[in-house]
């Protein structure tokens, strides 16, 4: 035995757990904030790897009726559904099915990632893809 591990949790273990927790909350603040869930025009951005080239589809969700898109990327086929307020992956032939399990996303900043198919469905705050503005006057 090289070193004998302590087998009872102590105050220092709690500290480690605390640090991880603070990091989680900190990350959540950093990654999940700045999203307006009201007002802004939502846009769905679908990035994929079709035939080895990166392809991007952008679609304004505002005023959109239900749209179904079938995309083939990295050898897998995903059925993506976009509505006025939500986006989700209806079906996929990828092995992990994580993208399908992620369910519906509806807020700017949220995303669905399908690793095997290398597809990302992301909701962004509209604004035509420019650097984005916080308010519009006019």
């Amino acid at each position: 035995m090289r070193s004998s591990p302590k087998l009872k949790p102590g105050i220092w273990d709690a500290l480690v757990a605390l640090i991880v927790l603070v990091m989680a909350v900190g990350c959540a603040c950093a990654v999940w904030t700045g999203d307006s869930d009201g007002g802004g025009e939502l846009e769905a951005v679908v990035r994929m790897d079709a035939d080895g080239t990166d392809t991007e589809i952008r679609m304004r969700l505002d005023g959109l009726n239900r749209v179904e898109r079938t995309v083939t990327s990295n050898g897998y086929t995903l059925q993506i559904v976009l509505t006025e307020t939500e986006a989700w992956v209806e079906a996929s032939d990828c092995p992990t099915q994580d993208c399908v399990h992620t369910g519906h996303i509806s807020r700017s900043g949220q995303s669905i990632v399908c690793l095997p198919a290398r597809v990302i469905v992301q909701l962004v705050g509209g604004d035509g893809g420019d650097p984005g503005v916080d308010a519009v006057v006019g």
Partner: peptide
């Protein structure tokens, strides 16, 4: 960041200036 609506495209998220 304040966008000034592009008068030529009143119904779009287009800005004459930011």
């Amino acid at each position: 960041r304040l966008g000034v609506q592009d008068p030529a495209k009143p119904n779009e998220a287009a800005y004459a200036a930011i």
